[in-house]
């Protein structure tokens, strides 16, 4: 039952093919755009830009992390883990669920504030002083999602 040239059924089959092709092309276009952005996922960066000892009594340190997303798709921060190090030793880490969910637009950047805690509940005065002097080195990982694909972004100090 191949289509004979010029028949009515021929035109119907060709018209339906054009319609299917158009819908497939739109689906393909969006998917390919996602592929293009996902291949660039290594360009998404997270930087610990600032931190502050907010309360010595409660043992809290707030850290500001800026996420830059130069890709063509937005990414959503899902969570993560942060560590504040002094001489390579963890002295501060993020609280449970402390990394807020935030949508970083395509080609844009967002800064999130993460509340962290001292690992030692009763840190020494020298430790607090060194942190206040800016010696803390904040590193870690943020878990992010692009469309439905998850990946991790390293937090650099």
């Amino acid at each position: 039952m191949n289509v004979s040239t010029g028949s009515g059924s021929n035109r119907l089959v060709i018209a339906s093919f054009v319609l299917v092709f158009a819908v497939a092309a739109v689906t393909f276009g969006y998917t390919w755009q996602g592929q293009m952005a996902f291949i660039q996922r290594d360009d998404v960066t997270a930087t610990a830009t600032a931190y502050e000892v907010t309360s010595v009594e409660n043992g809290t340190v707030t850290v500001r992390v800026r996420v830059d997303n130069p890709t063509s798709k937005p990414v959503t921060i899902l969570g993560g883990s942060l560590f504040g190090k002094l001489d390579g030793e963890d002295v501060v880490r993020e609280g449970t669920g402390a990394v807020p969910s935030e949508r970083v637009p395509a080609g844009g950047s967002r800064t999130v504030t993460v509340e962290c805690h001292f690992v030692d509940r009763d840190p020494s005065g020298a430790t607090v002083e060194r942190i206040r002097d800016g010696e803390l080195r904040v590193v870690g990982l943020l878990s992010v999602r692009m469309v439905d694909q998850r990946f991790d972004v390293e937090v650099s100090p």
């Binding site: 092709f21 497939a24 689906t27 393909f28 969006y30 998917t31 390919w32 996602g34 469309v147």
Partner: peptide, 21 residues
């Protein structure tokens, strides 16, 4: 024409998690 349709469909299916659909 049908090859391009099949190729586009195959790619879209395999990477559907990168599309909004």
């Amino acid at each position: 024409a049908t090859g391009i349709l099949g190729g586009m469909g195959t790619f879209s299916y395999t990477r559907i998690d990168l599309s909004p659909f």
